[in-house]
Simulated assay, not measured.
Amino acid sequence: MKMLRTRSCIFLASAAVLVAGSTLARAADPREGFSFGSCTLTGKPNTISLTTLEKDTLTVATPLPNPGWWNGTSPSSISSGFEYCLAADIAYRAGLHHLKIVNMAWDQYISGTSTGYDIALGSTTITPARQKVFNFSRPYFSAGLGVATLPSNNISEGNVKAKRIAVLQGNVGADWVTHILKPQSVLVYQSSPDMFTALMAHQIDAVVTDTTLALTQAKMSNGNIRVVGQYNVDQGYGIITAKTSVNTQAIDKAVAELAADGTLKQLSKTYLQPMFGVSPDSVPVWSLK
């Protein structure tokens, strides 16, 4: 009888330890209390320190729509996407519980005159000219310039210079097309949707923009638009902070850690590859002729 009581006590004590251990394990999850849409958070909170406009909130400026990067058409509808979850992970690592998204038109976003945000995150290529206006983090993504067109337009590496080419105002591709590619005609548009609407209406022959954005539009067109080539211009996307910001170094540190721990690669695999339909590396690389 005494032996049974002893075994019972040992069993109850073991069970108590297991329950306590389980409780401690749950309590030890650093992500508890943090939730940003469908994002899977990585790293640990409070590993960087940010000074923000609003308490416990990271305010992020971006030009919408931008499928794959920000999945949704308005700030209130977004809960996933490469850049949304990148911003969420930065907020989490700063110990912040909220994201506030500020939607801006592209020309307003890239002008350098806008205020009211902590960081700006919108597939923004780092260039020497832009570095005079903004501070940038190290690149979190790299892309070339893709050539998107309709199959009936018969655009090729050899004849593209003789065609009507659309570019996005303020985009690196606009300067490159105008001064390096030098096609017969360059038409500048205020937004990405405007460019691709013009392409579908046969008002232009091709769009030259970031390969990732071109592939996204092609996938959404159900085969009507194709990305037939790309130019390797080694574009790197960086996170913007204002020249007066005290957060620049902390944001750069966060991007470095997100690259080192594999988070950026996972974000690309989760949100970008399904949007592209094909790997950007599979698009033929064109040279200037």
Rank of each mutant, 00 (worst) to 15 (best):
2 K>D: 11
3 M>Q: 14
4 L>F: 12
6 T>F: 14
19 V>E: 00
19 V>T: 12
24 L>M: 14
27 A>T: 04
30 P>T: 01
33 G>M: 04
35 S>K: 14
35 S>I: 10
41 L>E: 07
44 K>E: 07
45 P>H: 00
45 P>T: 02
47 T>G: 01
48 I>F: 11
50 L>K: 09
52 T>G: 05
54 E>P: 00
56 D>Y: 04
59 T>G: 03
60 V>C: 07
64 L>D: 08
64 L>C: 03
66 N>G: 13
79 S>I: 07
82 F>I: 02
84 Y>M: 08
85 C>V: 01
87 A>C: 04
88 A>F: 03
88 A>V: 03
89 D>C: 00
89 D>A: 06
94 A>W: 04
100 K>L: 02
103 N>L: 01
105 A>H: 10
105 A>K: 09
106 W>V: 13
114 S>K: 13
120 A>K: 03
121 L>W: 11
122 G>Q: 10
124 T>L: 11
124 T>N: 11
127 T>M: 02
128 P>G: 04
134 F>G: 00
136 F>S: 06
139 P>H: 10
140 Y>V: 09
145 L>Q: 06
145 L>S: 06
148 A>F: 06
150 L>N: 05
151 P>L: 12
162 A>D: 13
162 A>S: 13
163 K>A: 09
163 K>Y: 03
165 I>F: 10
172 V>R: 10
176 W>G: 01
177 V>Q: 06
178 T>M: 12
183 P>A: 00
184 Q>L: 14
185 S>I: 14
197 T>H: 15
197 T>P: 06
197 T>G: 11
198 A>H: 11
203 Q>W: 12
205 D>F: 08
206 A>G: 01
207 V>G: 02
210 D>H: 13
211 T>V: 13
223 G>F: 12
225 I>S: 05
227 V>Y: 00
230 Q>K: 09
233 V>H: 00
235 Q>P: 02
236 G>N: 03
236 G>S: 03
238 G>K: 06
240 I>L: 14
240 I>C: 06
242 A>N: 12
245 S>K: 04
246 V>D: 13
247 N>V: 12
247 N>G: 12
251 I>D: 09
253 K>N: 15
259 A>Q: 13
264 L>D: 04
265 K>Q: 15
266 Q>E: 11
267 L>E: 06
272 L>V: 10
273 Q>S: 11
274 P>E: 05
275 M>A: 14
276 F>E: 09
279 S>K: 08
280 P>Y: 04
286 W>L: 01
289 K>P: 11
